[in-house]
Amino acid sequence: MERVRYLEPQEKQKTREMYEQIFSEDTKEFVDYYYKWKTKDNRILVLEEAGIPEVMMHLNPYTLWIHGHLRKVPYIVAVATYPDCRRQGKMGRVMEWALQDLAQQQAPFTFLLPADPAYYRGQGFVFFPCQNFQESFLGKGTEKKLFPDLQWQKAEAVDIPEMVEFSNNILQEKYHIFVKRDAQYYQRLFAETKAERGGILLLKEVSAKEPRCARGEEESRLKGILVYGVEQQKAEIQELLIEAQDSGYKTKLCREALPELEITFGEFPMMVRIANLREFVSLMKSEKACCYEIKVKDEMVPSNCGCFRIEVSKDGGRIQEISQEKVKEEIDIQKLAEMLLEDTCVYLKEWV
């Protein structure tokens, strides 16, 4: 008999065989990292037939800053179906189960990096309208040093408090939705970049005027963070956070940081899916006040369906039920997500 359920913590390792078979491009080092770090606090949803998993979906929790509010939101990864179980609607049933469960948990939304966007559109996902993208490719090369007073150095565990403060300040200035950084976030990221044969570099402004301690170490101020992985002499930049505004600086700074490698910028075009509409609306803000009197359709999450008046302004979002007679437009959950996120700047750049 077919059954959909979350695995118990002690059962999670049993999915490794399926992960390695479906995602064979991932190295052993990365899979080791994933099953050591990410399965500590994630949830793995499976569809079983006679007790044997045929489909799995991992929901990895992240604390997101959403217009000044902090919420735990699941990032859906490792969506997999055994080849002989495909094209039978099994993954669709798992996704529907997951979304309804998230709605009951009052999760505002979930997000993923789609392998097949058309498939996920059919399940109510849409691309975030306003996402951060970087240059797609930069060749290697040497150029005159851009800022003589700045230098790259390898990040260490002792740098984490400064990295947390710097990254959150930079992101909060520019974006409405992003992953909130903390010490645990960077501890995990050190392990992740090691598994990806990369690392984390810090751009420091060095001043010899004020010694840090009796040993005469120079005082330095953090100006940037570079997160990268390496494959076949190519560095994939996962994240580059710097104070400089000119994107041209990013090109030159990456070349200075990794002069022996070709540089590519990872792209993370995330898709979003509203889980609990009421919770989602309550977190939204917009400089441009808007009001919708609509009938919402959601084929996968019935609790989101109904007739509502939705108002969003710089002070926040409100939603209330209205009668059918007051409805001015009928709209599906995908279109509504695009409308409510139209001017929300999003920064999500997670591998897993």
Rank of each mutant, 00 (worst) to 15 (best):
P53M: 09
E156M: 02
T39W: 11
V164Y: 09
T39S: 13
Y249M: 10
F23R: 02
Y33L: 01
I274S: 05
L45K: 02
C213R: 12
Q172I: 08
K194A: 15
P148T: 03
R215C: 05
E205V: 03
I66G: 00
K314A: 15
Q187Y: 11
G316R: 01
Q21G: 06
C130N: 07
E156K: 06
A103L: 09
V296W: 04
D101M: 06
L102H: 11
N304F: 06
R71V: 02
P9C: 11
E293V: 01
F166P: 01
E49H: 08
C213A: 13
F128N: 01
P114F: 12
L277H: 00
Q123F: 15
Q232V: 03
W152Y: 10
S207Q: 07
K335P: 00
A155I: 05
P114M: 10
I237K: 04
T110P: 02
T81N: 13
A214D: 14
K285F: 12
I66T: 07
K328I: 03
I52C: 03
V77K: 00
E29Q: 13
F23T: 02
G224L: 12
V158E: 12
A50G: 12
R255N: 12
E243K: 13
A118K: 10
A191K: 08
R318E: 14
D315L: 08
I200W: 11
N304D: 07
G92L: 01
Q100L: 01
